[in-house]
Amino acid sequence: MRPVTNVIICGTGGQGILLASEVMCAAALSAGNDVKKSEVHGMAQRGGSVSSHVRFGEKIYSPLVEEGCADLILAMEKMEGLRWAPYLSPVGKLVACDLRIFPMTVNTGLAEYPDVDALMIEHGLPVQLVPAVEIAEELGNMRVVNVVLIGAVSPHLPMEVEHWHRAIRERVPAKHHEVNLEAFRRGRELFG
């Protein structure tokens, strides 16, 4: 029986979490899995915390990942990765974009943005930080940050490279295929 893989993708509204989770689901599907995913829409999106749960394997019931069971957390913003830490399994990985986006609570002086790197060390989190914004800048397209990150987490997941390529071609308009496939490659080679 194929084991279940549990992934949480988190970040803030407008970061392309939806596309990232769509690509991941498409890759899992083309590798022959049952797939479920769940996310929050509406008011929750206007710059607020956003998350998507992705689960795949032989047979999936719950669309939500259970606390302490995530094999992988992909954080598009560093602090959001910390927020989901309780969901990480004892052998899970946290891959985070090395990017800070200040919430309104920080901008209005109600809170301070914490030293995320220090907290990650203090709590011993199994984290890999990805310079995805810099890579996207080098590629000349800021909209591929999420695909760089998908590339970076891909070695942690059981799908083959061709499944990912097919998923990107399916989910991204044809004129952007090349830059997205390159973004994926650049992400994947970081830890692959």
Binding site: G47, L82, P103
Partner: peptide, 19 residues
Amino acid sequence: EKKLTWSEIPLPGRPPSLC
């Protein structure tokens, strides 16, 4: 219940805001 390896870390909230 699953034993949590990492407990909740207190962090500033991220409420929605006008775009």
